[in-house]
Amino acid sequence: MAVEQAIQETKLVADEAVRVVDDAVANLGASADQLIAILQQVQRTMGYLPRAALRRIAEALDMPFMQVFQVATFYKAFSLEPRGRRVISVCTGTACHVRQSPLILEALERKLGIEVGQTTDDGEFTLLKVGCLGACALGPVIDVNGAVFGQMTVAKAEKLPDQLLKEDHRGTQK
């Protein structure tokens, strides 16, 4: 039964991947210079890049599958594994680094019980570090799904995950 369920799920993912890729290609055009943009749209919509999506992109752009796969593993914006609902990116740019961002990162690793690059078991959080968010004057900064939190401290970082969960909870109640 579990096997059948897994097969069914895989098929659902594959169907969705095809749909998402077809949308992206229709939007952006089937040319090689749009490969990264297409991958980005799929990544945004699905939270990761399933194999089925990569295969469909290769077909649509008439490009070897291997090339799509290489690009998907080369750039940091992409993940071949599902990411958490909230992606916490700790800026480790120079300005943030000299303002002690490594301690912020450690605090989050401790709080979430995961290492950089991993996702919590409940699928809520993925912890990443990024080169520079370009908000250097506000360092240390953290980005959560596009929202920037500036002037972080170890104490603020420790509270952040709970705060995010609470805010979300309030959001769904509205």
Partner: peptide, 23 residues
């Protein structure tokens, strides 16, 4: 055949040999 390619980057770069066996 385009069956082989580099995957990952930097220190993690490796040759992906059996990623695209279909090709």
């Amino acid at each position: 055949a385009h069956a082989i390619g580099f995957v990952g980057r930097g220190q993690d770069r490796r040759v992906g040999i059996h990623i695209n066996d279909a090709a």
